[in-house]
Amino acid sequence: MAKAQETVLELNLNSLSHNFEYLKSKLKPSTKFLGVVKAFAYGSDAVVVAKHLEKLGVDYFAVAYVNEGIVLRENGVTTPILVLHPQPINFKALIEHCLEPSLYNAKVLNEFIETATKQGQKDYPVHIKFNTGLNRLGFSENDIPFIINKLKSTKCVKAKSVFSHLVASEDLDEKEFTENQIKKFISIAERFADLIGYKPWLHLCNTSGLLNYPNAHFDMVRCGIGLYGFGNSFKEDKNLIPIASLKSVISQIHNIEKGESVGYNRSYRASKSERIATIPIGHADGISRIYGQGKGFVSINGKSAPIAGNVCMDMLMVNITNIECKEGDEVIVFGQENSASNLAESAGTISYEILTAISSRVRRTFTK
């Protein structure tokens, strides 16, 4: 594999295939697999990832917003796409691009029915979202009679699925809470099906739900972070492979003396004679200032180099005093050998945040 000569996000599609097959192996053959490709496929490349997953046989995709789904459609993705958080202003465009909305309150349900009616739709697939404890989006169980009445009073839409979202499926200390969520969801789904007169698909599990709660796989599971190589636990991380490696290069090396400072605001001062390397990546590329002051680190020639001082907009500096390296050497910000989870943890955040923060100005490369 070629060494990086600039800042690049290298995406390994073989690793994506491995993760998909591993996660799918946990399911019954009848359980559908939805790949979550929102936020540029967790900071990678939604079009490339979606097209690869299509070849692997994914059943559904999910995005957060309508424009994300439109980009996929305009690039030839034909698999059904669930839009998790659509806004009414985009309903017409959603229908024009054959996207499927999550309807999560009375306002969006009423406005989507109105738009679908104007567009002459019949049995347009919609997904009814219920809140079972996350308290973010979703109808309450008490809303079921209202929803059923609205759906039965029109022929323009039909409930394709009923779904909810687990709160803490990765945290086994919250197992009781999660089991209660599952029970509540089953109760909602059974009541909904009895009143509507048919059985919509049911889906509840995210990646950690898939791995920890096989009793809740139902008709479909929704996998995001697992596809990209993270299982939310040390045990499962070993079974998955991060698909993204953020690489850069040493632009310049400075030899500084005791008492000299590095970077803006003189926030780092050498305690002895030190060597400092400048790397062409900064907070405009997604490496936040929270990683500065020695919290974050990169890997150079297999050794960890802590970030010195504040992260700049386009650059960061690292301490290489104890590392044999030279200008032009490759730098691993995160990847298989320096996990994004470990880097995120060093600054008190999570892998999701650093992955999705990588700027579009960082060139993406693809390898198999």
Rank of each mutant, 00 (worst) to 15 (best):
K118R: 15
Y60R: 09
T349E: 03
V58P: 04
F139I: 11
E10G: 03
Y60E: 10
L211C: 03
G69L: 02
I196L: 12
D219S: 13
T321K: 01
V49G: 04
G328D: 08
R269S: 07
Y104Q: 08
L56D: 10
D173I: 07
K238Y: 00
F40K: 14
G296K: 07
A4K: 11
T117A: 03
D314C: 01
R275D: 03
A244E: 02
E179K: 13
A168Q: 07
L204C: 11
I290L: 09
Q87K: 15
D173K: 13
E170W: 14
S304G: 00
S15M: 01
D59P: 04
K155G: 13
K129C: 13
I256A: 03
K129I: 11
S359D: 05
F61A: 09
T349A: 01
R222S: 12
F177C: 09
G309N: 00
K199V: 13
E179G: 00
C98P: 00
N180F: 08
L202M: 15
S245L: 07
A216M: 09
S30V: 08
F163M: 15
L134M: 15
A189Y: 14
K238D: 00
K107G: 02
F33V: 08
L172I: 09
H283F: 13
A93D: 15
I276P: 04
V108A: 01
L13D: 11
C156S: 13
L13V: 11
Y228Q: 00
V83Q: 04
E337Q: 13
I144K: 13
K184C: 06
Y60F: 15
V249Q: 02
S30P: 03
S351Q: 08
N215C: 08
G69Q: 03
D143E: 14
L202A: 11
C98S: 14
L23N: 02
L53G: 06
V333P: 10
H165C: 09
T207E: 07
S25D: 06
L151A: 07
K326R: 12
F130K: 11
Q87W: 11
A62E: 12
V36D: 05
V47Y: 06
G328S: 05
K32R: 14
K326D: 14
K183C: 03
V77P: 07
F334V: 06
V8A: 07
T321R: 00
K295R: 12
E111N: 05
K51E: 09
N12L: 09
A216P: 10
